[in-house]
Computed example of a mutant assay.
Amino acid sequence: MQAEISFVHLFLEASILVQLVMLTLLIFSIVCWAMIFQRRKVLTSATQQLKAFEDKFWSGADLSKLYSEISAKKQIQGIESLFVSGFKEYARLRKSNISNPQIIVDGTHRAMRVALSREVDSLETHLPFMATVGSISPYIGLFGTVWGIMNSFIALGAVKQATLAMVAPGIAEALIATAMGLFAAIPAVMAYNRFSHKVEKLENSYGNFMEEFSSILQRQTAAEPLA
């Protein structure tokens, strides 16, 4: 008696509905893993960029020169986007006829707040999909298992003499759906939790920089006469 049955054999012998469940979970898993590697690269790059920018910013570099240097880049993102948005709005308001320094600082702060929201949305790309896969995959797999086992018992009831060998392959086919659901869900949940924590840390760092930069511009505005 052959005790080993390949996964491909079990898949081919499963009902159409169970096969669709398995294919859906396989697609979920492949897409989710692609997103995991992509998000890991993006968040690692954002963390490295944050450290490099803060080192340069707090080294006493001239803000105008730093703005010109970053603005010359083809793609501005992360904390650099907050700095460019804030300094650009600050320079624009300074050249206007606004006489109240607080209005200048508030306008600069709002510009950076918009940039912060945009960057956080970018960092959170694909995270909702991971959360969805992590929450629904076990249930999709369980549905396939229930359906497969139900069909096995229906077929078992149609014969006069039932044996374990007759029902075992059908149950094995059905249980693979649950296994695939867990295989798709577990990495998705782990990645979602880890990446959400990283995004939260980056958002806090961006927020802290935004407040500190606003304070610097406020002191600079108070110290220099308005144009």
Rank of each mutant, 00 (worst) to 15 (best):
V84M: 11
R39Q: 03
L12I: 09
A52D: 07
F83H: 01
K74N: 15
M22F: 13
Y206E: 05
R113P: 02
N208A: 15
Y90N: 11
I70F: 11
N151I: 06
I79V: 07
F87I: 09
Q49C: 06
S117Q: 11
E211T: 10
S96V: 14
R118A: 15
A52S: 08
V189E: 00
S196H: 03
M22D: 01
A165Q: 11
F37K: 01
L142T: 05
F143I: 10
M112T: 14
S29C: 07
A172I: 06
G134V: 00
E119T: 07
L12M: 14
D55S: 14
V42W: 06
E173V: 02
M180C: 14
M180E: 02
M150D: 06
A165D: 09
A34E: 09
E80L: 00
Q102L: 09
V120C: 06
L217M: 13
T108N: 10
S45E: 04
I36F: 12
H109G: 05
R92Q: 13
L66I: 06
S99C: 03
R40N: 03
Y206I: 08
K56P: 04
M1T: 10
G86K: 02
F129K: 00
I70L: 11
V105A: 15
S117D: 12
T108K: 13
L10E: 01
P128V: 03
S81E: 05
N97C: 02
L142I: 10
I136P: 01
M22P: 09
A179K: 08
R94G: 00
L116A: 11
A172N: 08
V146E: 08
L10M: 11
E224W: 07
C32M: 07
A172Y: 11
N208F: 07
A115K: 06
T47A: 08
L20N: 05
K56I: 13
I171M: 12
S152H: 02
F143A: 04
E203N: 10
P101T: 09
K65E: 15
S135C: 02
T44Y: 13
A172F: 06
S135E: 01
N100T: 15
S117Y: 11
K65D: 14
L182E: 04
Q220V: 10
G60C: 09
L25Q: 02
I154H: 14
A185S: 12
D121P: 03
A14V: 06
F213M: 14
I16Q: 03
G141S: 14
L26V: 10
K74Q: 10
S117C: 09
F28Q: 08
Q220S: 15
L93R: 12
R113Q: 15
L66T: 04
L156N: 03
A184G: 02
I176P: 01
V8N: 12
Y192L: 01
S85E: 05
S122T: 14
G148M: 03
C32H: 07
E69M: 13
L164H: 05
A162E: 00
I176M: 07
H9W: 14
M130P: 00
I36V: 14
A3Q: 13
V105I: 13
K160C: 01
L25G: 00
S6E: 04
L26A: 15
A191M: 05
K56L: 08
